[in-house]
Design a protein around this nucleic acid. Sequence first.
DNA 1: ACTCCGATTTAGAGTCGTCTAACCCTAAAT
DNA 2: ATTTAGGGTTAGACGACTCTAAATCGGAGT
Lengths: 226, 226
Amino acid sequence: MMLSDVMEDYLKVIYQLQQGTDDRIKTSEIADELDVTSPTVTSMLEKLEDRGLIDREKYRGVTLTDEGETVALEIVRHHRLLEAYLTEHLDYDWSEVHDEADRLEHHISEDFEERVADALDEPDVDPHGSPIPNADLEPPERPDSDSVIEFEEGDAVVVEEVADHDPEILSYLADHGVEPGVELEILEVAPFGMVTARSNESDRSVSLPEHVAHHVRVARPAELEQ
Amino acid sequence: MMLSDVMEDYLKVIYQLQQGTDDRIKTSEIADELDVTSPTVTSMLEKLEDRGLIDREKYRGVTLTDEGETVALEIVRHHRLLEAYLTEHLDYDWSEVHDEADRLEHHISEDFEERVADALDEPDVDPHGSPIPNADLEPPERPDSDSVIEFEEGDAVVVEEVADHDPEILSYLADHGVEPGVELEILEVAPFGMVTARSNESDRSVSLPEHVAHHVRVARPAELEQ
DNA sequence: ACTCCGATTTAGAGTCGTCTAACCCTAAAT
DNA sequence: ATTTAGGGTTAGACGACTCTAAATCGGAGT
């Protein structure tokens, strides 16, 4: 299937918006994400539907077909492998890799993908802790993490994933010891969603406004599970 | 200057066709190289002229302006750095790098270019022996090599550059010991252009039909110059 | 100088992805 | 059941890049 970069972008965005809900994805959500107008999205959705890549109900939004999901997973795999490679081998900081991976994700060959995966020894998460789809493009299983917002004062948690792309925010988080793998003690969850926590990394407390905290996904430490 | 990938491709091709001649580059040469029709080239040349990137005389072909050349050099630098990086760090063979570099050359950031150049320690040639323009994008000085066709029986020469992109031909050449750096003894130059030589690498003789030999650029060994 | 042929340009049209403006549908509130 | 607010779709257009067909240029050879 020969797809344009643009079509791939639409599929990727639909895939990502679909993560964590069963809702159909709406035209305006896609438009916001891709920074185009709604009519533009509508006309592209028609094409994607013609190609059998999405399932569309007019006025009610879309979902990916299996085929569409496979394409999306391929792009996501490219993106996350690139992020991992750039941090591992080209000295990029995790705050910088997203844009570069976005540039390149549509333009690498199967061969390149494979060599990069080899060089990294088939990693299963990218530098932000997001799962990298495997080479067979099966949907990766949903990590059992929750937004840090779900927790409360006194909880001890481990950062699993920081699902944000803004370099400024990522730099801020890294500076304050919020990265995948670090342990956080929740100090306060304000009613308007701001979370304050202490990182065992920086040993300083850090406050995360709601829109940031939302992207910080954490799990209870392993020793507390059973 | 915001240029499309397509425009960059035109400039790159014009640059490469311009190497080694003072002739203006003709519409049909560009059309052949890019695999588009002549009218398509004509209309793109109008746009490039409007942008001040080429100097055009209708019916007589084009040359790059300084600005156009700078853009072309940027793309060539990207291409050749990528080729070098892929062979050096991702285990590519010199016969495989061209297509991958073509895919990526328009899509890497300045930052990426710089990091790759650093990782390679600012190389000055790519795996085919072609000069990599420096970061200031000054035109690299013309290497003092000639096509192997220019030599005659008995000459000993060193391969400087193999300016071909066909993976089959490059594999063939590598298999027969024709790569940058190896010494060749010319055994015969047939009237129809075929060159037969012995490589001190493979210690076998190899015959190069004219269109291949044309791309094998060599120099007399250093110890013979003064 | 003239003719002719190959190369170039002009003319006109098609595709892709985008836009704005106008119209329409759905769901929530009355 | 009706209204209405807000998002979705339709219609029509545009810019970028490409094509085919037709007209035109210019150099090579008389």
